[in-house]
Simulated scan of single mutants.
Amino acid sequence: MSDKELPHSEWVGQPHPDGEPEPITAAEADASELTSSRFPLGQPGKRFDRRSPFMMGLTAAAGVLVTVGAVKVVLAAHQALLLVVAALFLAIGIEPAVSWLARHRVRRSVAVALVFLVVLIALGGFLAAAITPLINQGHALIGDTPGKLHHIEDTYPALRRAADRIHLDQKVQDAVNSKTDDIGHGLVGAGKVVFGAVTSTVIVAVLTAYFSANFPSLRANLYRLFPHTRRPRAILIGDAIFAKVGGYVLGNLLISLITGVLTFIWLTVFGVPFALVLAVLVAVLDLIPLIGSTLAGVIIALVALTVSLPVCVTTIGFFLVLRLLEDYLLAPRIIGRTVRVPAVVTVVAVLIGGSLMGVLGALLGIPVAAAGLLLVREMLFPRLDQDANPSPA
């Protein structure tokens, strides 16, 4: 038999030996007859008997080894995995916009590029216009904190007595001095932090672009992991989960942007200092569910108190109205009903996510909880109800 009749790969084991063992030669001849256009590598054979003692023992041992190995990999590479998870959720978040462009006859790669271009233009324009005021106001806010605190204490004696009891002046001054020393004497450490942040941002951006551009193939390969009989229902449930996560991520970003803009307008109108820095702070903190907007309101109220008590009170009222506006108008209209999570589950999800993965876990806790509730409602509850009420024989 010539080399052309053998199923040898021209890229493997060349040149093939003339004295190849007869069993191998015969097997290669049979292999050449198995190849076809439908099955280039041969049709899959019969499955192993999973109930045999050997297979059961092998499966159990392999399961233990895989579980231990997976835990070790997660612990060793948790920082990289956090970046991958963040990129995946961002890709799912921009998927509605990319799919909308794709439905309007825009190539998917071009659609991803357009979405990224819009984001880069918006971010670049904001930084170009606001980076200098942000830096100046940030330094001024840190440097003026003790003076602002003394002004509040002199204006409101009750607050001064409370601050004296807890030695607030000394604590604030020590914190400012420590930060100043860190900035002055820790340039190398600050450079490492900046370099790490820039590197992580670039990695997340590249991974997000990759995941988004290849999302249809990733989705199809994911669904191929399910058995043929269960694949249609897996597609329905999986797409519902993707829709929930994407709607939450994109909607939460839009709501945060709206709250930041409204806060900037309010602070500018009432002459509250450091309006731009505080507005950006509100937009960032508003991304964190439950406690983010509350913490931002407390910080803004304290800064507004340096202007006057009426401005502080009205600012508190503004944040209460803004919270109601966000909960009952913006969130239902922007996020809609794609993410329906009970309040107690929301609190638990945010706490658990924050304790496991920090701020990223708090951000992802609600969509993950929504996906889990969907799985429980569609898979676990029907099975439990069926077991509890068996049909008559």
Score class of each variant (00 low, 15 high):
residue 295 L to G: 00
residue 275 A to R: 15
residue 159 L to F: 15
residue 91 A to E: 06
residue 256 S to M: 06
residue 302 L to Y: 01
residue 175 A to D: 05
residue 134 L to E: 01
residue 207 L to I: 06
residue 60 A to R: 09
residue 155 T to C: 08
residue 1 M to L: 13
residue 126 F to I: 08
residue 365 G to H: 04
residue 230 R to P: 03
residue 370 A to G: 10
residue 310 P to N: 05
residue 173 Q to A: 12
residue 78 H to G: 12
residue 231 R to K: 10
residue 213 A to C: 14
residue 341 V to Y: 02
residue 342 P to F: 15
residue 159 L to T: 06
residue 326 E to K: 03
residue 367 P to I: 01
residue 262 L to M: 13
residue 295 L to T: 01
residue 233 R to C: 07
residue 295 L to A: 10
residue 84 V to T: 09
residue 25 T to A: 11
residue 292 G to K: 00
residue 315 T to E: 01
residue 215 F to P: 09
residue 318 F to N: 00
residue 250 L to T: 11
residue 338 T to K: 12
residue 317 G to C: 11
residue 31 A to R: 12
residue 320 L to M: 14
residue 116 F to A: 09
residue 255 I to M: 03
residue 231 R to L: 08
residue 208 T to I: 07
residue 138 G to R: 02
residue 139 H to P: 02
residue 31 A to C: 08
residue 331 A to S: 12
residue 204 V to G: 03
residue 124 G to D: 04
residue 64 V to L: 13
residue 382 P to T: 08
residue 153 E to I: 09
residue 120 L to W: 14
residue 181 D to N: 13
residue 291 I to R: 00
residue 250 L to C: 07
residue 169 D to W: 07
residue 37 S to I: 13
residue 324 L to R: 08
residue 118 V to F: 10
residue 161 R to V: 10
residue 58 L to G: 08
residue 330 L to C: 04
residue 130 A to W: 04
residue 282 V to R: 01
residue 304 A to V: 00
residue 214 N to M: 11
residue 20 E to S: 11
residue 108 R to W: 08
residue 307 V to H: 02
residue 7 P to Y: 02
residue 311 V to W: 03
residue 84 V to R: 06
residue 278 L to I: 08
residue 109 S to E: 15
residue 240 A to D: 13
residue 91 A to H: 05
residue 264 F to H: 11
residue 7 P to R: 03
residue 100 W to P: 02
residue 391 S to F: 11
residue 368 V to N: 01
residue 51 R to I: 07
residue 249 V to P: 02
residue 238 G to N: 05
residue 196 G to D: 09
residue 338 T to I: 07
residue 32 S to A: 15
residue 360 L to Y: 04
residue 252 N to K: 15
residue 185 H to V: 12
residue 140 A to R: 10
residue 111 A to T: 06
residue 178 S to K: 15
residue 29 A to H: 08
residue 215 F to H: 15
residue 363 L to H: 00
residue 135 I to V: 15
residue 307 V to T: 13
residue 346 T to I: 11
residue 311 V to M: 02
residue 354 G to I: 00
residue 72 K to R: 12
residue 103 R to G: 10
residue 318 F to Q: 00
residue 360 L to I: 07
